[in-house]
Design a protein around this nucleic acid. Structure first.
Length: 542
RNA sequence: GCGCCAGUAGCUCAAUCGGAUAGAGCAACAGCCUUCUAAGCUGUAGGUUAGUGGUUCGAGUCCACUCUGGCGUACCA
């Protein structure tokens, strides 16, 4: 619908110069009676043209050379809105299109040929993923899905560090548990990793090596076993949510390949770093940030900023047109430094978009659960997925905007009752499958010839909703807003359920019944395509 | 102190570069199954969009200040 109006306005701009300057902007009015699409362009132009908006609107309409089989009416309303109402027969054409394009409906090729990298989760292998990581994981994967829907070639990437202090502590934790399991009395410091999984890893080492490792001087063996086991589990956790990373990028390789030294040398050469108190500082104030920051500590170890900058440079060098980082809000202070560093080294920081999502608050029995990996006070993502199912987890984390805090009520999610909106969508899909099973038994088949019979309000509303899908996908992808898809699908499902209640297929006259079959098929395809973007299954029965 | 995010119906949240009468779900109340899945549908009720001021044809949305909450503000990541 929007596309048609856009071409109409483009044509008209040959006669009305002022239409060239403005991109016509169409919205769906939230009020019934205000048409199917509306534009406020006349009001925007008021100042520039120094004319009454309704006058401008009139002039625009006179110059729109529209097809009356497509547009039923155009009205000027309120202070100067131009409202467009489409003909039912035009609306119904979407049914054929959807049935032809099937799973491709909603996708576009707008960004075809572009490469994107979406980095997410990126938790260091110090313990199982928690519910807190779940939001990051689901958002990252869904944004990747959205980008693929609009044509991007997307790589999903997980960045990790297996070298730092935390990992050392992890190794030592395993080592201590190992000794304890073999009967030695050990003191287990409070700041070490308390989780049960540490003991399990220690047990694996006993199974494998017996007590031979008691003589190990340092934690290396324990650390590397821990890393292997924990990563195995992390990957399994992600796969339980249908998330598959393409690349696991090890921070350590940046050192091994000299990329850290290179960046350091670059900063020095550009006179962007200096030494003070035995540390190396980056002149971030010169780059427009608040204060200079340390990039190499006096111990000789870099701070996270240096490898992060080097890491992002590899992304540029790997040829990505779009680079997305998904972070929790606890990282919101880190990226400005990194971005400034990248920019200073001559890379186009505009290609990098950082998605900061707010924290998940876990509620159990009405109480807030404070989470800490180290203290082993957490609910794992696996436990959650096991208890409520992949679909609920994915839907729940996708249904809110990133910037909004998310309350995850464990008890509510476990309920699996009608309070859970994901079932509403899946139910719509399953209902359609059921209809299609029955109609086939009755030898009724989809027909695309009598769409003029689809003229009740419920049918027309459903067709209008179907029209919206392509724009929703594009808009959600370009703005990284998975929750819009969830909201859209709830509206679509509502339109369908209303249709289902008011319009029957069995018992209707054959031509009408068969036209309705093609309509519900179209609705089912769109539900399925939308759910698939969210990573939620579309069941055929419930 | 400073920075980022938020504050919208009893609860959880939407609201498309600022648009028309701020919308859904859940919870509450009243109805709808002899016919394609009632995990559904219809209706009622529920609001000074935290507050104050400003910008303009028009503000939940933009600006300023205040209040409340989350996260940061490291030679941790």
């Amino acid at each position: 619908m929007k596309d048609y109006l856009k071409t109409l306005f483009e044509d008209a701009s040959n006669k009305l110069d002022y239409l060239k300057i403005n991109n016509a902007f169409f919205t769906i009015p939230n009020q019934k009676g205000h048409g199917d699409l509306s534009t406020n362009i006349a009001m925007i132009l008021t100042k520039e043209l120094k004319k009454n908006p309704r006058e401008i609107a009139n002039e625009i309409i006179e110059n729109l050379n529209y097809d009356s089989t497509i547009i039923e009416k155009i009205e000027i309303a309120g202070p100067g809105f131009i409202n467009f109402t489409f003909t039912p027969i035009f609306l119904s054409k979407i049914i054929s299109q959807i049935n032809e394009e099937k799973s491709a409906f909603g996708t576009s090729k707008k960004y075809f040929g572009k490469k994107a990298n979406v980095e997410f989760v990126s938790a260091n292998p110090t313990g199982p993923l928690t519910v807190g990581h779940g939001r990051n994981a689901v958002i990252g994967d869904t944004v990747a899905n959205l980008l693929e829907s609009v044509g991007y070639d997307v790589d999903r990437e997980y960045y990790f560090n297996n070298a730092g202090r935390q990992m050392r502590v992890l190794g030592e934790s395993v080592q201590l548990r190992y000794k304890a399991l073999l009967g030695e009395t050990v003191e287990f410091p409070e700041e070490y990793y308390q989780g049960e999984y540490i003991k399990e890893i220690a047990q694996l080492l006993i199974d494998e090596f017996g007590d031979k490792l008691l003589s190990e001087k340092d934690e290396t063996v324990f650390k590397s076993k821990a890393e292997t086991e924990i990563f195995k589990e992390i990957k399994a956790t992600l796969e339980n949510l249908d998330i598959k990373m393409k690349i696991f990028y090890n921070e350590n390789s940046l050192y091994e390949e000299g990329k850290i030294d290179y960046v350091l040398a670059q900063f020095k050469e550009k006179d962007l770093s200096y030494e003070k108190d035995d540390a190396i500082w980056l002149k971030l104030t010169e780059l427009g940030n608040e204060q200079d920051k340390v990039i190499v500590k006096s111990t000789g170890e870099p701070t996270y900023r240096l490898p992060d900058i080097a890491y992002h440079i590899t992304k540029f060098n790997r040829g990505y047109d779009l680079i997305i980082d998904v972070f929790g809000s606890d990282h919101n202070a880190t990226f400005p430094d990194v971005k400034a560093g990248i920019k200073a080294l001559g890379f186009d920081a505009e290609k990098v978009d950082v998605l900061i999502h707010q924290f998940v608050t876990i509620l159990e029995k009405g109480e807030v659960v404070k989470m800490s990996t180290r203290k082993a006070n957490y609910i794992t993502l696996d436990e959650l997925t096991a208890s409520v199912g992949k679909d609920v987890v994915r839907y729940f984390f996708n249904m809110r905007s990133l910037s909004s805090h998310l309350n995850f009520d464990i008890d509510l999610a476990k309920k699996q009752s009608e309070e859970n909106p994901v079932f509403y969508l899946q139910y719509a899909h399953a209902r359609i499958s059921s209809i299609l099973r029955v109609t086939i038994e009755q030898d009724l088949h989809a027909s695309f010839v009598n769409f003029n019979l689809l003229n009740t309000e419920a049918e027309i509303n459903l067709m209008k909703k179907l029209h919206q899908f392509q724009n929703e996908v594009l808009y959600s992808a370009e703005n990284y807003e998975p929750h819009r898809i969830a909201n859209y699908l709830e509206e679509l499902a509502a339109s369908f359920h209303r249709f289902y209640t008011e319009c029957r297929i069995l018992g209707s006259e054959v031509r009408l019944a068969e036209a309705r079959i093609s309509l519900v098929q179209a609705a089912q395809i769109v539900l399925k395509n939308g759910l698939s973007i969210l990573g939620v299954t579309a069941p055929d029965s419930m």
